[in-house]
Write a protein that binds this DNA or RNA. Structure first.
Lengths: 345, 345
DNA sequence: TTGTATGCGTTATCAC
DNA sequence: GTGATAACGCATACAA
């Protein structure tokens, strides 16, 4: 393991100054004679030169890296987002540092600190912590931030929002349009604005239709975990089934819970959608793979990641960095877990 | 956006040398008087000091970062692996750069190059490319590499292997033990050693039982994609159904394909497991969420990630870095998609 | 115990 | 066109 070649090594071998080598190998537009260019490139290749970005970055005060903080990439929604981010980052020669916050504010701050120390200038974050003081401070120090999924009411933070409320409204309206009137809503703990918004959409649609809302909220607050949501869906479905006046349709706050609902219903001999219709929320691919394929609201995860990264890079590179909000629109994915009330058996 | 404070700024304000500041703030064991320590720490805090790791890393020639290259974190198997890696990395104050190679050798090399340039000393990789010359070269330059999932026959590369062959064998034996004799095997393109090994395990078990193997291989070679595997499963299941002598059990090379198989069977009115039993391979959580819950072979994804990262960090930090192989063992996850032939209806 | 000075690998500002 | 040299922020060998 010999130590790596530097521009100085190349300079010595080529009988030129390291300045010239730098100018050539960093593709600067500074004029260097064709002859020297070729010579230097040849020698660099011969010597297996690998530029040390640490040096370059220290000098130029950039890191060509962006940070991403999400609750957990185990969650297919976030893994799609990160996948989209990474794609755009790669196209622009940026690398991505992925951080799983596990919805732990302490971890979140730890990551932000590391990101700042590593001189990373851009961050895409789905933040969960209440105390945004470190984030705020970091922004003042020059960090460019795009918030996804979770709203951050902080000056200078651009948002990629998703119209959760409309999504909740659309889902409920869809169920209503199929003739359902006893529509249950199952949701994980209503402590995040996104969850609250979906619920508001549901409530609003029900109110509009002059119907009684039926909300089952899970009070537990475990760390983010797919199987946990699934189990929650099962539990809440159970509650709904036990009620004197069973709903004819159940709307779940995310797909994973909807899977749990469907599973529990099937297990209890309740047919989906013949007996009870089920709607999800997220539009992850697995919805296609279960039986029946899940009717759901599509949240554009992958595209959200791509967009977030594009906007972040613009912000990092742009002289003017206006703060902006983007509101992505929900889309109904009509599959087979919802049946018109008229066709119920 | 004022420019960040350095140890020099602090030194000036504290009327000490920057060396002393460095010694205090980097928690060096170099002796500094209690009084000065406190003074320096206080001023550092007042000035909102954030150490610039670029400087530190350039000086010490470390980067406290590891790289991870996997085909795609969209794949739940890999997202679990990466999640495990990230957990151990965090505990050790390392950050993780995540790269999705999309099974594209060009991209893979591009990432390796970037990793070297960023002075990253450790890499966990599921490599797909045939030409390992760049990787080999990087190892000689001091890169520590742990190969997961895909074997890399290169000197100095430690492997976290998984006994695919035994997994394939165990799955088939399980089916055999339930009395099945017409057992079909559906697999994506047999161009990766892991896929071949599973198939070999299947073939060996069949041969041992003196039974005729039935292998359906997909010839298409799309980029890694969950829905694609699902569709492949559907297609291959179809072929198997069309055969004159239908199998009573189908073993799929991964869970996603097994979902496709189950879906197609259900759609064609074939009941799982009453009419045909289905086995998967991977043990991803979603297997729990479908109906019937998928009997499968567990590949310890999350633990594999944790182990890989632990071994990598040992290797980076250890004076002696012996090359080693770890062979993780498959585990049967018995759920409800397999029925003894005697109980078939 | 503290300070001075040098260098990590690179780019940028000069001068030639 | 090219070269010498000074930064970038930090850690450390050496001096004091």
């Amino acid at each position: 393991m010999k130590k790596p070649t530097t521009i100085h090594d190349i300079a010595r071998k080529a009988n030129v100054s390291s300045a010239t080598v730098s100018r050539v190998l960093s593709n600067s537009d500074y004029p260097v004679s064709k002859a020297l260019q070729e010579k230097i490139r040849r020698i660099a290749a011969e010597m297996n030169y690998i530029p040390n970005l640490l040096g370059k970055q220290l000098k130029k005060n950039v890191s060509m890296t962006i940070g991403v903080i999400v609750p957990s990439i185990i969650n297919p929604f976030y893994s799609s987002v990160v996948f989209g981010i990474e794609e755009i980052a790669r196209e622009n020669h940026y690398t991505v540092v992925t951080c799983n916050s596990l919805q732990d504010p302490t971890l979140e701050d730890e990551y932000i600190r590391t990101i700042m120390e590593k001189q990373i200038k851009g961050l895409i974050i789905s933040s969960i912590s209440k105390d945004k003081s470190l984030l705020k401070n970091s922004i003042q120090m020059g960090l460019n931030v795009i918030a996804i999924d979770q709203t951050i009411e902080e000056e200078g933070v651009s948002q990629i929002k998703f119209d959760y409320r409309k999504g909740g409204y659309m889902a409920t309206k869809h169920l209503l349009s199929k003739g359902h009137s006893r529509i249950g809503y199952v949701t994980s703990r209503l402590d995040r604005p996104s969850r609250q918004s979906i619920c508001q959409g549901y409530l609003y649609a029900m109110k509009e239709a002059k119907l009684e809302p039926i909300v089952e909220e899970s009070k537990s607050e475990e760390l983010y975990n797919a199987v946990f949501d699934f189990d929650t869906g099962k539990k809440l479905a159970n509650k709904l089934l036990a009620a004197p006046d069973r709903p004819t349709a159940i709307f779940a706050c995310n797909d994973m819970m909807a899977f749990g609902v469907i599973n529990e219903l099937s297990q209890q001999g309740v047919k989906v959608p013949e007996d009870i219709s089920v709607m999800g929320f997220d539009g992850i691919d697995f919805g296609l793979m279960i039986h029946p394929p899940l009717t759901t609201i599509k949240q554009p995860d992958y595209d959200m990641g791509k967009l977030a990264c594009r906007l972040l890079l613009d912000k990092i590179n742009g002289e003017d960095s206006p703060t902006f909000d983007v509101m992505l629109q929900p889309k109904l994915l009509e599959r087979n877990s919802v049946l018109p009330i008229s066709e119920r058996v």
